[in-house]
Amino acid sequence: MNAPVRISPLFDVQAPLARNWTTRERMQVVARFGADEATKRASAGIGDLSFLHRTGVKGAGAAAWLNAQGIDTPAQPNSFLQMADGTLVARLGLTEYLIEDAPGGTRAAALMAQPPGERVYPVPRFDAALVLTGTQIPELLRQTCAFDFSTLAAPALVMTSMVGVGVTALTLDSADGPVVRLWCDGTWGGYLWLTLVEVAGDLGGGAVGVEA
């Protein structure tokens, strides 16, 4: 029962570069791309978190329905919160929400198993989800995106266009420096990933696997 049954939207572009594979949340994901991933991660690492379970809801009744399911909702559009169990809840518009489980979480699946309430519309999400880490990330963002991330005080959620792809970006501060989460439509994910990896390569970074 532990065979991978999910496939990352980035599989086709990652397969030629991958060294080892592993399984996370029943999705086949790249464990390692190369030997020097710790260096890349500290400089400009591009990681794939598409294996996390996520779902969306929208509609005028979405916030009340999510609250009834035990999910906190951010008060403002274009903001997010992290629940105590690690579940990420992002408010993408006036009435649209993205819920992403922490590793091992089951809230997204539980939500999708519920019949939606009145004026609640499920939004299945098949995003490519990336994470950018390292000291060169501000430079990477400057080269790939017209939006000026330096005007944002992390943590912040912003929807913008990166190398021509519409993305939802979430900036976080961590002990290791800036961290940026990106979600984009899965069909664009390969192009976005390849482009970011190429730019990151010029900055001393590159693709990193989930075990790095």
């Binding site: 274009n78 017209a146 939006f147 929807m159 266009s161 519409g166």
Partner: peptide, 17 residues
Amino acid sequence: MKLMTCPVNGTRPVSEF
């Protein structure tokens, strides 16, 4: 760069619109 102001997301490059 031309700019356009979205009522929800703020001022952005017109290439996003």
